[in-house]
Simulated assay, not measured.
Amino acid sequence: MSAAAFIRITRPHNAVVAGLTALIGYLIATGTLTPPSLLLAVIVALITAGGNVINDVCDVDIDRINRPDRPIPAGEISLGGARAYAAALFIAGIAIAALTPPLCLAIAVINSSILVAYAVRLKRIPVLGNGAVAYLTASVFLFGGAFAGIEGLVRNLSLAAITFLATIARELLKDAEDVDGDAAGGARTLPMIVGVQRTGIFAFACACGAVVVSLLPSGDWWGLLYLAGIAVVDLVILFGAFRGLRCTTPGCVRESGATSILRMGMFAALAVFAIAAVI
């Protein structure tokens, strides 16, 4: 077992970005950052890392075929060692969350449980797995806001809802891209049940829902400047979802770049909310 393997299995870039996102959630809720709020980044990074490790534990058989270079199939970390490591990361994250408001602690415990459930079972259930990913992505903003109390959480509800709906749209289109590979791996996704075209319609409907939520009055920053910025974001989200809506085959969805465009739209929405909160 090497130290490098223990770092690599956590997908550190992914964990750090998630931690920084929690800080942005606090910034949006309060308009500022404080030294204690740095705990948010540490907690989210640890729990995200734990989720990444337990995901590799549950996918070890698939990774032996598709990703033999990953630490567990490569023999750099034993299966038992990875399980213990995941548990330690979750425990550390929750222990630090105990130093934060009860609302933050509750979200940390719930999200840790969902990450384990997703790795073990939920990812294999159509729509429910997509919903779990969408919730986990959106809840980082709720976690950041909750550090400022229930009022902070409420201030972040709009961004969380936009993120939830846009993430579902993106996850469904990602499934549409991967129909061939998922079929070969024995997975069961929504596009495999209802087809790529109907999945695109559902994804577009979710994107439209995100746009509607973005225009609802929310927060002290809601006004002409916010609406001007979010209108651009909404056009990007709708454009991405529309690109997927036109497709009837997995290859078409891949070539459309719909999932990448939706990801850009989500990052742009985050930027608009952050800027609106501090000016």
Rank of each mutant, 00 (worst) to 15 (best):
A74R: 07
L190Q: 07
F239A: 14
I110G: 08
S139E: 14
Q197G: 01
V17H: 01
S78N: 06
N130Y: 05
D175Q: 03
G240S: 04
A5R: 05
R188I: 04
A117E: 07
G223V: 01
I28M: 13
F202G: 00
I150Q: 06
D234W: 00
S158M: 09
L38E: 03
L245I: 02
V42D: 10
N52T: 01
V120M: 12
R124I: 00
G50D: 00
F6L: 15
M192I: 04
E171I: 01
L159R: 02
D220C: 00
F147C: 07
L38T: 08
L215H: 07
T137N: 13
G31N: 08
I94L: 11
D182F: 12
Y226K: 06
L39K: 06
A88K: 08
L99R: 11
A82P: 13
F267S: 12
G81A: 11
A22S: 14
L79D: 03
T248S: 15
A268F: 11
S158A: 15
V236R: 02
A210D: 04
L89Q: 09
L115D: 01
V127N: 04
V116T: 09
L136D: 08
D69L: 05
L23F: 08
I107S: 11
D69A: 10
F202E: 02
L39M: 11
I230Y: 02
V16A: 15
F202M: 14
L136C: 08
N55C: 12
V44R: 02
A231P: 05
L224I: 10
A88G: 13
I65D: 04
I193M: 13
G265S: 08
A119D: 11
G200M: 00
A183C: 06
A92W: 03
I168D: 08
L79M: 06
P35G: 04
V213K: 07
G219F: 02
N111D: 14
P191I: 01
R8K: 15
A95G: 11
V212F: 14
L79S: 04
F6K: 15
N156S: 05
A98H: 06
T163F: 03
A271M: 14
A84M: 14
A4Y: 10
T137P: 02
G257N: 08
I162V: 15
V272H: 05
W221N: 06
F147R: 04
I279W: 10
P217K: 01
V116N: 03
L172E: 09
A4R: 14
A86E: 09
F267H: 10
V196T: 06
P250K: 07
V272W: 09
S2D: 14
T48F: 04
V42T: 13
P68M: 08
G186M: 09
P35M: 04
L40Y: 06
G181S: 10
A231N: 11
P101E: 05
L40P: 13
T100G: 07
G251T: 04
I47S: 01
G81R: 01
I193E: 11
G81L: 13
A97K: 12
C247Q: 14
P68I: 07
K123W: 12
L20S: 06
V116F: 15
W222K: 03
V60F: 07
L122C: 05
L115Q: 12
A134E: 00
H13P: 00
C247M: 12
A22F: 01
D180V: 09
P102R: 09
L227Q: 10
L216Q: 11
P126V: 05
R124E: 12
R11D: 00
A258Q: 09
D63V: 00
T30D: 00
